[in-house]
Design a protein around this nucleic acid. Structure first.
Lengths: 239, 239
DNA sequence: AGCCCGAATTCACTTATGTTAACCCGGAGC
DNA sequence: GCTCCGGGTTAACATAAGTGAATTCGGGCT
């Protein structure tokens, strides 16, 4: 059931069958969340963490002036709020962008893992570190890349991440995210997201029909995005 | 010697004297780094991590077009590359903004801590989680706050973080960072940093003479910045 | 006291992106 | 087949922030 997470962790390092078993048995139940509902609301103190099994989710923060910034997009296999196991209080919300299915892992089970399976614990730690590295990459994109490069970078990242959890079909994959949500993600207005999306299509870098994105020219897209996947740390090595 | 780090961790949770001892004895040596030199270069695979004992440092990334984005500012007591213990390869550089003194902790020692002192390991994990939460806060500021609020937010954050490691004097503290470096931090041009800094002074929110910043009106500054320190997780509780 | 040099400041001008408001399109439901 | 509605698209205009270059400031050195 949590195979996508296992696939992702196995991109980082070898997992023993014992570790796979421990991880799978840490799940207590599965929960359904409807689109546009919070998977984890800001300000709460969860006693369990959630692994996304199906759907798309986003971490976000709402400002006083009502504007929203999405700080992370989550796909199948992502542990969307693993950090709450240690940081305790949610300083942001996690919302379901589509209807979602999540596997729930009680913090007590995570604690047991951290006490008795240090290597697995380190891989979970790494999982949160990659979230952090991704935040940094987004900061760079937001601060120093033009809108076109920023958008292209996001597409490159989604492609590589979705490929790792077997959610791509050649160069095509599903991105069930509206342009308004993309605006909140990229820090742009909806109108400008539309302009930039059109330029990417005009340049024959991608096609985007409905929810299906297809990368038409991976090399040139990477170049426009100045994309380097190092930060995702998908390199299997002893950790 | 690593008291500032201990102070910070003790803001998160109680440390046992054994844990303090283990942490202190994990340090193998102290290193000096001159201003503008890398403490940890991008692309390397460190075998040890660094705790900042003296000075100011920054994590950064240089783009193909030569532009730079600073993704984190580090102050005394910060573990600037703890993540390299697990992620192995540096996907960004860490530069000394002033001359710096750093305590060096071999990864072998960190591994031993992760095997034998799970609670301490969780606090180190938390240390990296707060880095991540800070990245998110910066993303929000960068994407959805006007330059003035963004700048104000950074000052609020530095004040709270410096206070935790006893580097403030009332509402005054040292920020040895040029306006050009602030531009790379905030994602703004040097000229605009200057304009915004002047507005903050004009509004009597802060004074900034040489390297000394003084907050003149904390309440109003927080309000302009829409600042909420929750994300720093300085709340002592069992982790 | 005079000189240097990096940093801060100012100025004039450009541009990327935001805003507001229509308008259009396609699929879900009747 | 018609209507509704959320999303996508366009257009006209406004503005925050960038650019390039000159000027000033201030602390360290001679």
């Amino acid at each position: 059931m949590i195979d996508p997470l296992i696939w992702k962790l196995e991109h980082y390092d070898q997992l023993s069958s014992e570790e796979r078993r421990v991880l799978a048995s840490a799940v207590s139940r599965v929960r359904e969340v409807r689109a546009d509902e919070d998977i984890v609301p800001e300000g709460t103190r969860p006693t369990e963490s959630s692994i996304l099994l199906e759907g798309f989710a986003a971490r976000y923060k709402i400002l006083m002036n009502g504007r929203r910034q999405i700080t992370a997009l989550h796909v199948i296999g992502d542990f969307v709020d693993l950090h709450s196991f240690i940081s305790k209080k949610m300083d942001h919300g996690v919302i379901a962008l589509t209807s979602c299915q999540v596997a729930v892992v009680p913090h007590d089970n995570l604690r047991r893992i951290s006490e008795s399976h240090p290597h697995l614990a380190r891989l979970l730690w790494l999982n949160t570190l990659v979230d952090g590295a991704t935040h940094r990459e987004w900061l760079v994109a937001m601060g120093r890349r033009p809108a076109l490069g920023h958008f292209a970078h996001l597409i490159c990242e989604l492609f590589v991440r979705l490929e790792a959890v077997r959610q791509t079909d050649g160069y095509s994959f599903q991105v069930p995210v509206t342009q308004a949500e993309l605006g909140d993600t990229l820090g742009l207005s909806t109108v400008h997201v539309n302009r930039v999306a059109q330029e990417l299509r005009l340049e024959k870098l991608i096609s985007w029909q409905g929810e299906t994105v297809t990368i038409l020219d991976w090399e040139r897209l990477k170049q426009v995005a100045d994309f380097d996947a190092t930060y995702l740390h998908f390199e299997n090595e002893p950790r």
